[in-house]
Design a protein around this nucleic acid. Structure first.
Lengths: 222, 222
DNA sequence: GTAAAATCTCTGGTATACCACATACCACGG
DNA sequence: CCGTGGTATGTGGTATACCAGAGATTTTAC
């Protein structure tokens, strides 16, 4: 039995739940989902479920084929490249914007995230969550709500793409040290070093996710 | 009587129509809109209309207050600044990405847009449309569909914000010459000049829109 | 006369019944 | 045996009836 969040529209509950299922790979890429089934499972009628599906389709988590079915989006290499490109743009924008103005207090917050990551080297789920928050924190300093919102969308996508990519020991240590590089550059307000650090961080993540994606595809074909 | 586009879901028709009404200022910022009224006016039942409203709310064209009403979003200076900031990011990204690789043929397409603008100095609506397409064309060359999509969203917002800002003769001539600057820099593949041209173009547009917004606000208060 | 309380009316929120079409299957004819 | 067309079934698409809460209005108690 689940506590129903009061005051929250059923549409938004459905949205959250379905998205969570996708992120957790309870609903698998390519799988068909059916409105009636979802309604029943969630205990919500089709109307709000449909509304949530409209939104999920807009964010490209699912694809609807009229009168055939709705399908969880498949992850393609092109998607990963697109998303990583966007992430790089937003990261870079944020870092450039805050480089000269970030306060020590704000840097401390970032350091706290990295420390937490160091304490959660083995908890993959938690580690990725912290990674997302680290970058979200940086973006939030830009005070651009629209970008913050889009960045969160992107962040969830990356989490989705890369859930299994980060398991490898090496990538965990790399992530930590790359985050430290970014913090270091922020402290010294060295914009060039900052952009370099950010670039290689995203570039490395991208490579790892794509590698993971490819090996998954190979497994499927065997 | 209006021709119904066959094969298009009513949800999407409603979305398009309502958005158009907002963009045309048939529905005014701050105004309340009611689902039943919209349904009746569009000849569509509430269900697909509601679905379209979900999407419009996500794109921040409207704001829904549960059990009170739905309202056309008011335009604030913060919104304009945010949107212009995003536009600058995307523009810059696109120009950097294509600067070295753009073909003469692609540049010709851009020049065609500018020529058309010169021929439509007096048709404000058309002029703005061409402006949007000019920039959309540049962004489309990046082959990043997500950014293309978001850029279109942003483009509509700018059109909405600035519909009246561009009427002034000076801004029309400036826009044309700024576009020519961008083309010139693209031709010589001079990235620095390109970014300068892009920056000042967006910066100038922003100033004009904000000025217009302020004078509108003043009018309302009188 | 005033303030509090009941109610009335409008809204968006939700559930449900029905519709049109895409698809798969099966019967029938060649 | 194969192909073709009808038909059954299940999907998303749509319309509609009902619900609950917010806010204005009226009533009522003092």
């Amino acid at each position: 039995m689940k506590k129903i969040e009061t005051g929250m529209a059923l549409r938004d509950i459905a949205f959250k739940e379905i998205k969570k299922s996708i992120l957790n790979y309870e609903l698998l890429p390519g799988q068909a989902i059916y409105e009636r089934e979802l309604s029943e499972k969630l205990g919500i009628s089709r109307t709000p479920v449909r509304e949530s599906l409209s939104l999920l389709e807009r964010e490209k988590w699912i694809i609807s084929k009229p009168r055939v079915g709705t399908f969880i989006k498949e992850i393609t290499e092109e998607d990963v490249i697109e998303v990583m490109e966007i992430r790089m743009i937003f990261d870079r924008f944020a870092l450039e914007k805050i480089c000269g103005t970030i306060t020590l207090e704000q840097i401390n917050v970032l350091e706290k995230y990295v420390k937490e990551q160091e304490n959660n080297r083995t908890d993959q789920q938690k580690f990725i969550e912290l990674d997302k928050e680290f970058h979200a924190q940086i973006v939030s300093l830009t005070k651009n709500e629209q970008i913050e919102k889009w960045f969160e969308e992107i962040g969830d996508k990356i989490r989705w793409f890369g859930l299994k990519a980060i398991t490898e020991k090496s990538r965990i240590e790399e992530t930590i040290s790359e985050h430290k590089e970014i913090i270091k550059a922020l402290k010294s307000q060295d914009i060039n070093q900052l952009l370099l650090a950010s670039n290689s961080h995203v570039e490395n993540t991208k490579k790892e996710v794509i590698n993971q994606l490819r090996s998954n595809l190979n497994e499927e074909n065997n």
